[in-house]
């Protein structure tokens, strides 16, 4: 990851969402992006220029644009039409964003488009986030990584976030993932946790 002092940046064409520029690079704000927050509070997964990424819950393409600055290609899945309009605009300006308007719970509907990837990044406001991650990991190469941004409030508002967190980790382990890191994104985001796993080679 590229750090200018304490500031996380990505190198690419600026002006996507009026982001601040620093030394010609785009500032990647941890308060705005959960992935940026993960790099501030934890280790995360080092994004490399050769990486192919499946991004679930792409929203307006804000974080997607930063990931695309680092990675080779980003398959960006988003279900809602309103943010999709923005995401398409971002994709048009970059050669390596493939926008897909589809439901992340139904990978069978976009399977013909997505190649095997090195990283699955998931940030969806759904109750069954672990199931979605597991279902989408057919696209993940053995040895590849999963970063799951757990929105505990979307799973169950009445449940204790820590309980949701533990349940999700258990579910991922049962599905065969090796959990590398799990951190809360405080102080940047409340009730959000990041779980970083790898898919075993065999």
């Amino acid at each position: 990851m590229i750090w200018l002092g304490e500031v996380l940046v990505s190198r690419g064409e600026g002006g996507v969402y009026n982001e601040r520029m620093l030394g010609g690079a785009r500032v990647w704000e941890p308060y705005r992006s959960k992935l940026a927050a993960l790099y501030h509070v934890g280790k995360g997964i080092e994004l490399e220029t050769s990486m192919r990424v499946l991004y679930l819950g792409a929203a307006n393409g804000t974080t997607v644009s930063h990931v695309a600055d680092y990675a080779e290609v980003v398959y960006a899945v988003e279900f809602a039409p309103r943010p999709m309009q923005d995401l398409i605009e971002v994709a048009r300006r970059r050669k390596n964003i493939i926008p897909i308007m589809a439901d992340a719970t139904r990978p069978d509907l976009y399977a013909p488009l997505v190649e095997a990837v090195d990283l699955v990044y998931q940030d969806v406001a759904q109750p069954d986030q672990a199931v979605i991650a597991i279902r989408n990991c057919v696209f993940l190469k053995p040895g590849g990584s999963l970063i799951l941004m757990l929105k505990t409030r979307s799973v169950d508002v009445r449940k204790d976030p820590r309980e949701v967190f533990d349940d999700t980790i258990t579910a991922l382990k049962e599905a065969g993932f090796i959990v590398q890191e799990s951190v809360w994104l405080v102080p940047y985001h409340q009730d959000h946790a990041a779980i970083v796993c790898t898919k075993p080679v065999m």
């Binding site: 039409p81 999709m84 994709a91 048009r92 050669k95 308007m101």
Partner: peptide, 16 residues
Amino acid sequence: LARLQTVSIAAAERSV
């Protein structure tokens, strides 16, 4: 990638 992107953008626009 260029071909795939053309198709995927057209598909997304149509869905919207």
